[in-house]
Design a binder for these strands. Sequence first.
DNA 1: GGGTACATGTAATCAGTTACATGATTTA
DNA 2: TAAATCATGTAACTGATTACATGTACCC
Lengths: 174, 174
Amino acid sequence: MTATSYLVLGLVSRSGPITSYDMKQLVKLGLGNFWTFPHSQLYAEPERLVGIGLLASEQESTGRRRRLFVVTDPGRTALTTWLGEETADGTEIRDLALLKLFFCSVAAPGDIARVAATAARTHRETLVAWEAMVERLRGITDACQLATLDLGIRYERVATEFWEEIAANPPSTG
Amino acid sequence: MTATSYLVLGLVSRSGPITSYDMKQLVKLGLGNFWTFPHSQLYAEPERLVGIGLLASEQESTGRRRRLFVVTDPGRTALTTWLGEETADGTEIRDLALLKLFFCSVAAPGDIARVAATAARTHRETLVAWEAMVERLRGITDACQLATLDLGIRYERVATEFWEEIAANPPSTG
DNA sequence: GGGTACATGTAATCAGTTACATGATTTA
DNA sequence: TAAATCATGTAACTGATTACATGTACCC
């Protein structure tokens, strides 16, 4: 069971019978913004979960004959068990700009500042997008999802600030 | 070329002839704390890079006959080119606790608070560990690496604060 | 001199990504 | 009705992880 497994299990549990495409839409509104994966995973993983009995699927008999997934009792149990387990691992932060910064001592002068400026802009855009999303979702989704977005917003705030500082005052290269 | 490729290329470029194990040690002192991967990658990836001419390797003739890697001219060019390219993608944040929070509406009451408390403790520990590391490295490493750690520290600060708030005041479940 | 931790590497597996392919709706 | 976009899926590939395996130095 990977993180993807639980993500799928959780989405299906929360939303009742849904298709892979529905999951994709749900992901776009929340976690998908900082935990990305291709939509093909949302087809492969549910199938795996059906195989081990944590999900069940039914084919629509009419129209597009899409595949709808529902959670089984074992699936629900697995999810709540996992949700109750405290985890010791920290956060994985993967950011190409940060990797570039790490090696800025071997970069051409001026490059870091440009990369930092672009990163700052990206983070600021993400920040306002999420603030808008929270406004839109407030009231129509649960407090848990909003809390998740809240951390995202806080991160984007510090990231924006950080990269602006780097852009304005890049570490001396060489 | 993946991020791992550039990580290896960068490490070898900065440090001269080094072994895979040396890379592992370097990674532990910096990026490895928020961008993890198994050490086997540090054996497989350099080999790939040798294969495409970006690194060269030499075997020690004595003792353990370890394999040492050095960067080639094309390798150095590839690295600096990449370092100069602005990247549009944002940050991937992968955190199991955050995924659990996202689904807290289907969790048993009390579970979120416990998970959050543990997460807060973990992040606080990471925070102090990094602050200590910065102290230790200051002066003996370059400003670029220190800047990278700085963002890590800032993130750990907001994360600690965030999880403490969640632990004290969890989103109402259900 | 036996155990433990550090150091070094490989092989097999699997998850994740890329790329392709096509059916259904909407819009111009 | 043609074009564009949304929706739905699959197949092949490859990078990442797990697991194994063994050698070397240190410590008791």
